[in-house]
Simulated scan of single mutants.
Amino acid sequence: MAAYKHLFFDLDHTLWDFDANAKETLTEVYTYFELEAKGVYPFIDFYKQYLHHNEILWDRYHKGFISSDELKWKRMWRTMLEFKMGSEQLAKDMSVHFLEILPTKKTLFPHTIEILNYLTQKGYKLHLITNGFEKTQWSKINNSGLSPYFTHMITSEASNSLKPKKEIFEYALNKAGASLSESIMLGDNLDADIQGAINAGMDCVFVNHLKIPTDIKATYIIHHLKELEGIF
Protein backbone atom coordinates (compact mmCIF):
# COMPACT_ATOMS: atom_id res chain seq x y z
CA MET A 1 0.00 0.00 0.00
CA ALA A 2 1.27 3.45 -0.94
CA ALA A 3 2.45 5.69 1.89
CA TYR A 4 -0.09 8.47 1.42
CA LYS A 5 0.38 11.72 3.32
CA HIS A 6 -1.99 14.09 1.49
CA LEU A 7 -5.66 13.30 0.96
CA PHE A 8 -7.51 15.52 -1.51
CA PHE A 9 -11.29 15.39 -1.10
CA ASP A 10 -14.06 16.57 -3.36
CA LEU A 11 -16.74 18.50 -1.41
CA ASP A 12 -20.20 18.36 -3.02
CA HIS A 13 -21.81 14.91 -3.18
CA THR A 14 -18.76 13.43 -1.41
CA LEU A 15 -18.78 15.02 2.06
CA TRP A 16 -21.39 17.78 1.83
CA ASP A 17 -24.78 16.34 0.83
CA PHE A 18 -25.64 18.63 -2.07
CA ASP A 19 -28.98 17.01 -2.92
CA ALA A 20 -30.33 17.19 0.63
CA ASN A 21 -29.10 20.76 1.12
CA ALA A 22 -30.40 21.84 -2.28
CA LYS A 23 -33.83 20.37 -1.48
CA GLU A 24 -34.01 22.33 1.76
CA THR A 25 -32.89 25.51 0.00
CA LEU A 26 -35.23 25.07 -2.96
CA THR A 27 -38.13 24.66 -0.54
CA GLU A 28 -37.35 28.15 0.74
CA VAL A 29 -36.91 29.55 -2.79
CA TYR A 30 -40.20 27.94 -3.84
CA THR A 31 -42.04 29.62 -0.97
CA TYR A 32 -40.28 33.00 -1.28
CA PHE A 33 -41.10 33.38 -4.98
CA GLU A 34 -44.64 31.98 -4.52
CA LEU A 35 -44.05 29.48 -7.31
CA GLU A 36 -47.09 27.34 -6.56
CA ALA A 37 -49.32 30.35 -7.25
CA LYS A 38 -47.43 30.83 -10.51
CA GLY A 39 -48.36 27.33 -11.64
CA VAL A 40 -45.16 25.55 -10.61
CA TYR A 41 -46.34 22.47 -8.71
CA PRO A 42 -46.01 20.07 -7.08
CA PHE A 43 -42.78 21.01 -5.35
CA ILE A 44 -41.26 17.55 -5.79
CA ASP A 45 -41.48 17.91 -9.59
CA PHE A 46 -39.80 21.32 -9.37
CA TYR A 47 -37.04 19.80 -7.22
CA LYS A 48 -36.48 16.83 -9.54
CA GLN A 49 -36.33 19.07 -12.61
CA TYR A 50 -33.79 21.29 -10.87
CA LEU A 51 -31.52 18.33 -10.05
CA HIS A 52 -31.84 17.09 -13.63
CA HIS A 53 -30.86 20.40 -15.23
CA ASN A 54 -28.22 21.14 -12.60
CA GLU A 55 -26.46 17.87 -13.41
CA ILE A 56 -26.56 18.51 -17.17
CA LEU A 57 -25.27 22.07 -16.85
CA TRP A 58 -22.52 21.14 -14.37
CA ASP A 59 -21.32 18.57 -16.91
CA ARG A 60 -21.27 21.27 -19.60
CA TYR A 61 -19.42 23.60 -17.20
CA HIS A 62 -16.87 20.87 -16.40
CA LYS A 63 -16.23 20.48 -20.13
CA GLY A 64 -15.82 24.22 -20.69
CA PHE A 65 -18.95 24.73 -22.80
CA ILE A 66 -20.59 27.29 -20.51
CA SER A 67 -19.41 29.86 -17.96
CA SER A 68 -20.04 29.76 -14.23
CA ASP A 69 -22.50 32.65 -14.54
CA GLU A 70 -24.49 30.77 -17.19
CA LEU A 71 -24.58 27.68 -14.98
CA LYS A 72 -25.88 29.65 -12.01
CA TRP A 73 -28.98 31.11 -13.66
CA LYS A 74 -29.66 28.72 -16.54
CA ARG A 75 -30.27 25.77 -14.22
CA MET A 76 -33.15 27.79 -12.75
CA TRP A 77 -34.31 29.03 -16.16
CA ARG A 78 -34.33 25.55 -17.69
CA THR A 79 -36.19 24.23 -14.65
CA MET A 80 -38.84 26.92 -14.97
CA LEU A 81 -39.20 26.25 -18.71
CA GLU A 82 -40.48 22.80 -17.77
CA PHE A 83 -43.43 24.64 -16.22
CA LYS A 84 -43.89 26.92 -19.27
CA MET A 85 -42.24 29.91 -17.60
CA GLY A 86 -39.37 31.52 -19.51
CA SER A 87 -38.55 34.71 -17.59
CA GLU A 88 -34.77 35.16 -17.48
CA GLN A 89 -35.10 37.83 -14.80
CA LEU A 90 -37.09 35.54 -12.52
CA ALA A 91 -34.53 32.77 -13.04
CA LYS A 92 -31.67 35.14 -12.20
CA ASP A 93 -33.45 36.43 -9.08
CA MET A 94 -34.11 32.85 -7.97
CA SER A 95 -30.45 31.97 -8.58
CA VAL A 96 -29.20 34.85 -6.42
CA HIS A 97 -31.58 33.87 -3.59
CA PHE A 98 -30.64 30.20 -3.90
CA LEU A 99 -26.90 30.92 -3.71
CA GLU A 100 -27.39 33.13 -0.65
CA ILE A 101 -29.17 30.35 1.25
CA LEU A 102 -27.52 27.14 0.01
CA PRO A 103 -24.08 27.61 1.62
CA THR A 104 -25.68 28.03 5.05
CA LYS A 105 -26.98 24.45 5.01
CA LYS A 106 -25.16 21.85 7.08
CA THR A 107 -26.19 18.33 6.03
CA LEU A 108 -23.19 16.03 5.57
CA PHE A 109 -23.03 12.40 4.49
CA PRO A 110 -23.06 9.83 7.32
CA HIS A 111 -19.71 9.38 9.14
CA THR A 112 -18.18 12.57 7.60
CA ILE A 113 -17.01 14.18 10.86
CA GLU A 114 -16.14 10.79 12.35
CA ILE A 115 -13.87 9.87 9.44
CA LEU A 116 -12.26 13.33 9.24
CA ASN A 117 -11.40 13.06 12.94
CA TYR A 118 -9.99 9.57 12.34
CA LEU A 119 -7.82 10.71 9.41
CA THR A 120 -6.60 13.82 11.22
CA GLN A 121 -5.65 11.82 14.29
CA LYS A 122 -3.65 9.46 12.08
CA GLY A 123 -1.63 12.42 10.84
CA TYR A 124 -2.91 12.80 7.27
CA LYS A 125 -2.98 16.26 5.70
CA LEU A 126 -6.46 16.88 4.29
CA HIS A 127 -7.30 19.21 1.42
CA LEU A 128 -10.23 19.96 -0.87
CA ILE A 129 -10.31 20.18 -4.66
CA THR A 130 -13.66 21.50 -5.84
CA ASN A 131 -15.18 22.86 -9.04
CA GLY A 132 -17.54 24.89 -6.89
CA PHE A 133 -17.39 28.66 -6.60
CA GLU A 134 -14.86 30.19 -4.18
CA LYS A 135 -17.21 32.26 -1.99
CA THR A 136 -19.91 29.56 -1.94
CA GLN A 137 -17.57 26.71 -1.06
CA TRP A 138 -15.86 28.59 1.76
CA SER A 139 -19.27 29.41 3.19
CA LYS A 140 -20.30 25.74 2.98
CA ILE A 141 -17.29 24.41 4.87
CA ASN A 142 -17.43 27.15 7.49
CA ASN A 143 -21.15 26.69 8.16
CA SER A 144 -21.04 22.88 8.20
CA GLY A 145 -18.07 22.64 10.57
CA LEU A 146 -15.67 21.19 7.99
CA SER A 147 -13.12 24.01 7.80
CA PRO A 148 -10.94 22.95 10.80
CA TYR A 149 -10.07 19.67 9.08
CA PHE A 150 -8.64 21.04 5.83
CA THR A 151 -5.30 22.71 5.23
CA HIS A 152 -6.07 23.96 1.71
CA MET A 153 -9.14 24.32 -0.45
CA ILE A 154 -8.42 24.53 -4.16
CA THR A 155 -11.33 25.83 -6.23
CA SER A 156 -11.72 26.04 -9.98
CA GLU A 157 -11.89 29.84 -9.71
CA ALA A 158 -8.62 30.14 -7.77
CA SER A 159 -6.73 27.64 -9.92
CA ASN A 160 -8.19 28.89 -13.22
CA SER A 161 -8.85 25.27 -14.15
CA LEU A 162 -11.55 22.63 -13.69
CA LYS A 163 -11.59 18.96 -12.79
CA PRO A 164 -11.03 16.71 -14.75
CA LYS A 165 -8.21 18.81 -16.27
CA LYS A 166 -4.85 17.74 -14.92
CA GLU A 167 -3.84 21.36 -14.32
CA ILE A 168 -6.11 21.76 -11.28
CA PHE A 169 -4.56 18.65 -9.71
CA GLU A 170 -1.05 19.95 -10.43
CA TYR A 171 -2.02 23.31 -8.93
CA ALA A 172 -3.36 21.54 -5.82
CA LEU A 173 -0.21 19.46 -5.37
CA ASN A 174 1.95 22.56 -5.67
CA LYS A 175 -0.23 24.52 -3.22
CA ALA A 176 -0.08 21.68 -0.67
CA GLY A 177 3.63 21.02 -1.20
CA ALA A 178 2.75 17.41 -1.95
CA SER A 179 4.28 14.90 -4.35
CA LEU A 180 2.13 12.77 -6.64
CA SER A 181 3.24 9.50 -5.05
CA GLU A 182 2.13 10.54 -1.55
CA SER A 183 -1.23 11.96 -2.66
CA ILE A 184 -4.67 10.50 -3.38
CA MET A 185 -7.95 11.99 -4.64
CA LEU A 186 -11.29 11.05 -3.06
CA GLY A 187 -14.53 11.91 -4.83
CA ASP A 188 -17.92 10.84 -6.13
CA ASN A 189 -17.76 12.07 -9.73
CA LEU A 190 -16.41 9.49 -12.16
CA ASP A 191 -15.38 12.05 -14.75
CA ALA A 192 -14.26 15.07 -12.69
CA ASP A 193 -12.72 13.29 -9.69
CA ILE A 194 -11.77 9.78 -10.75
CA GLN A 195 -10.88 10.10 -14.43
CA GLY A 196 -9.38 13.50 -13.61
CA ALA A 197 -7.09 11.97 -10.98
CA ILE A 198 -6.15 9.11 -13.32
CA ASN A 199 -5.29 11.64 -16.05
CA ALA A 200 -3.05 13.46 -13.57
CA GLY A 201 -1.35 10.20 -12.55
CA MET A 202 -2.84 10.32 -9.05
CA ASP A 203 -4.30 7.41 -7.09
CA CYS A 204 -7.99 7.80 -6.33
CA VAL A 205 -10.88 6.57 -4.19
CA PHE A 206 -14.28 6.44 -5.87
CA VAL A 207 -16.77 7.38 -3.15
CA ASN A 208 -19.68 5.55 -4.73
CA HIS A 209 -22.57 6.58 -2.46
CA LEU A 210 -25.07 5.73 -5.22
CA LYS A 211 -23.48 2.36 -6.11
CA ILE A 212 -23.07 3.33 -9.76
CA PRO A 213 -21.67 0.59 -12.03
CA THR A 214 -18.48 1.65 -13.80
CA ASP A 215 -15.62 0.33 -15.91
CA ILE A 216 -13.29 3.12 -14.75
CA LYS A 217 -10.51 1.55 -12.68
CA ALA A 218 -10.24 3.58 -9.48
CA THR A 219 -7.49 2.58 -7.04
CA TYR A 220 -10.19 1.96 -4.42
CA ILE A 221 -14.00 1.96 -4.41
CA ILE A 222 -16.08 2.55 -1.29
CA HIS A 223 -19.84 2.91 -0.75
CA HIS A 224 -19.82 4.88 2.49
CA LEU A 225 -17.19 7.04 4.16
CA LYS A 226 -16.55 4.76 7.13
CA GLU A 227 -14.95 2.27 4.71
CA LEU A 228 -12.01 4.67 4.49
CA GLU A 229 -10.81 3.18 7.78
CA GLY A 230 -9.95 0.06 5.80
CA ILE A 231 -7.72 2.04 3.42
CA PHE A 232 -5.95 4.56 5.64
Rank of each mutant, 00 (worst) to 15 (best):
A3C: 00
H6F: 12
F9S: 03
D12T: 03
D17G: 07
F18H: 14
A22I: 12
E24N: 09
Y32N: 00
F46S: 02
F46W: 02
K48A: 01
Y50E: 04
H53D: 03
W58L: 08
H62K: 11
H62Q: 06
K63G: 01
G64R: 08
I66A: 02
D69P: 01
E70S: 05
K72D: 06
M80S: 10
K84L: 08
A91E: 06
M94D: 11
T107L: 15
L108K: 07
P110Q: 14
P110K: 14
H111I: 08
I113G: 08
I113D: 14
E114Y: 09
L116H: 07
N117M: 12
Y124T: 04
T130A: 11
F133S: 05
E134I: 04
S139W: 04
N143I: 09
N143Y: 13
P148L: 03
H152T: 06
S156A: 15
S156G: 11
L162H: 07
K165D: 11
A172M: 10
A172H: 11
A176I: 05
S179P: 03
L180Q: 09
G187C: 12
M202G: 01
D203K: 11
D203M: 04
V207L: 15
K211H: 11
P213K: 15
K217L: 01
I222W: 08
K226E: 10
E229F: 04
G230R: 12
